[in-house]
């Protein structure tokens, strides 16, 4: 009887905050955790098929187009990659990965719904993160994916056009939004 619309809902429904930097919850974004050791047969092709990129170097993001647009692959650990793609394409991509890695030791799982994604934009967007993360934001290298602590929770971020993208777990999205809003308040610029 039920006819549920299959429209996914992000954790905060696109909440936003305007301070000296602009904070927006975006998403849901398609995300796949791919665990495989580099050198696994078919891995490069699998990633290529799923998101159109090569395998990223240690702590780097690869994008199939201009940075931070649509499809990409990030280095999470020596045997873990984060694939980013439009939410609706996840099941197709998972199937492609499964196909390309058939018979190999690998694990690909959908984690799109386990995450919350934020954009922090503005000239001083980095300061918002500098207030929360024990990471040297000013020395973030081009294309670097930094996993670290965001106040009391785990997070990962990278720089893109005009700001940063930050990923956290979904259950703490409200907490992270609170942190980012607190840190972005007008008048609290670090200089």
């Amino acid at each position: 009887m039920s006819d549920l619309s299959a429209k996914p809902v992000s954790a905060l429904g696109g909440a936003s905050f305007d301070g000296f930097a602009k904070v927006r919850e975006i998403g849901p974004l398609g995300m796949i955790t791919l665990r495989a050791k580099p050198g696994t047969k078919g891995l490069d092709q699998a990633v290529k098929a799923a998101v159109g990129t090569g395998l990223p170097a240690v702590r780097r993001m690869e994008w199939s187009g201009p940075a931070d647009t649509g499809r990409g692959c990030g280095w999470m650990s020596p045997d873990e990659f984060l694939l980013i793609l439009p939410y609706a394409e996840v099941s197709t991509a998972l199937a492609a990965l499964e196909q390309a890695l058939k018979g190999e030791h690998a694990l690909a799982v959908d984690v799109s719904d386990a995450r919350a994604v934020f954009r922090i934009e503005g000239e001083k967007a980095g300061q918002v993160l500098a207030k929360l993360c024990p990471a040297d934001i000013d020395r973030l290298e081009p294309g670097e994916l930094r996993r670290t602590r965001v106040a009391q929770v785990a997070g990962a971020f990278w720089a893109g056009e005009g700001g940063y993208t930050l990923v956290s777990f979904r259950s703490v999205a409200g907490y992270v939004m609170g942190l980012l809003s607190h840190s972005a308040m007008a008048g609290s610029e670090l200089g």
Partner: peptide, 8 residues
């Protein structure tokens, strides 16, 4: 353990 990083 690099708990808040690569997890290793």
């Amino acid at each position: 353990r690099h708990a808040y990083g690569c997890g290793k």
